[in-house]
Nucleic acid binder design. Sequence first.
RNA 1: GACCCUAUCGUCUAGCGGUUAGGACACCGCCCUUUCACGGCGGCGGCACGGGUUCGAGUCCCGUUAGGGUCGCCA
Length: 452
Amino acid sequence: MANNTSVRVRFAPSPTGYLHIGGARTALFNWLYARHTGGQFILRIEDTDAARNTQEAVDVILNGLRWLGLDWDEGPASHDATGPSKGTHGPYFQSQRSDIYRRRVQELKDKGFAYEQDGAVKFRMQREPIVIPDLVVGDVRRELTDREQEDPDFVIIRSDGQPVFHFVNVVDDLEMGITHVIRGEDHLTNTAKHIALFQAFGVEPPQYAHIPLILNPDGTKMSKRDTGASLATYQGGYFAPEAVVNYLCLLGWSPKDNREVMPVREVVERFDLPQILRHNARFDMTKLQWLNHEYLRTLPAERYDAVTAGFLKRSSIDASGFDTAYISAALATFRDKAKQLSEDPGVARFYFSDAIAYDPEAVKKDFVPDNKPRLGKLRDAFAQVEPFKADALQAALTKTAGELGVKAGVLVHPTRLACTGRTVGPSLYHLLEVLGKERVLQRIDAALAQIK
RNA sequence: GACCCUAUCGUCUAGCGGUUAGGACACCGCCCUUUCACGGCGGCGGCACGGGUUCGAGUCCCGUUAGGGUCGCCA
């Protein structure tokens, strides 16, 4: 950070068709560090494995990063490997950098660091232990494993001519002027190879910061199939990207002052490498949901509407016949009840369908003969309310209850059941206001017809 | 098998030689309340184990155990 040179960090995913939550967190930490230091965040697509690379797979990565709000200063400008890009260190797709790799292999051969064997090219690895200076873990002295003792050299170009990860990764970091490599701890021991490669090129290696991994709740490695492992899980509705970003910041990094709900702007200010934790963290969906609810409650109206649009789609509620103001007002009544929405998306259906399915248990309790005249009287009172606003509706209900000599709750419950079919939901008076007089009276009439 | 990293409530974490070991999520009570939720108050619950060093160890050292990672013509 106190360097003269500007920080250049990168996220270098392989297009596999999905974006792992751990990968998203790695991208986030790199982005945070770049933004904190005023440096550059570079996106590089490691698509050397041509067989499984598709534009759709690239889209998943680009869209995932955009959804999270992680903008890159250099990198692809489209999902097309041969398409336009931002930045002067391109191409940013490895599949387009063959000439560079060819040149660099020749350089190693010329220097005596590489040789051919069985049609492949191998790197002459040193046998002495290599010290990996890591900004998170400290100095790590890496010795050869017994397996490596037998043959410390490793392949950098496959016999089919394709360069391997260790090689292209180093060459690209070198060519792109990367100053800090922030990546998962699963790369820590392999970093010895990378340092040896940098040294062979006669270049000072970048600084390394290996961040802990994200594990399943049971402590096992989180892989593709595990719950919550794919970022796509959060993009489909329910989750505000702000909440996901906030949660990810807190996995493996701590502001050290017990703060938890922190807008990313503030994290950018305070984020730094020394505060990164050294131990792996388990993924806790419950806590993410809590954070999500915190955000849903306080998000600006526009953002709230955007996120809740996902709720509707996900719960297959058809709101096409309703104008945006109505939809917005309806969902706003769930602002501080996001938990209901995420646990049971159907709770919002009554706003968009007149086919009310009454909760059978509640019917037994609330649609009883005694309540018929009461509900009828309330209906008449509501019919007089103009304008049809929450405050006035509450006053009308309270007044009616008084005249009837019953507590407000006696009227509240049957009314809620009549209008929503449920026993839980938003504030009664506010939901009535949104529904509007016509729908409310019609629904109460329908309920009255049900009661014997 | 070898090499590397890690170890505080169930989970995420604060702690950087002297603390009644703090906070958050979850859970359980009570309060608030037209439901649910929010909020408030309280409760449950932790320094993996064994040796050192020290007047004193969650904090430092060593070992054990456990978890994770790596050793590929995958990335």
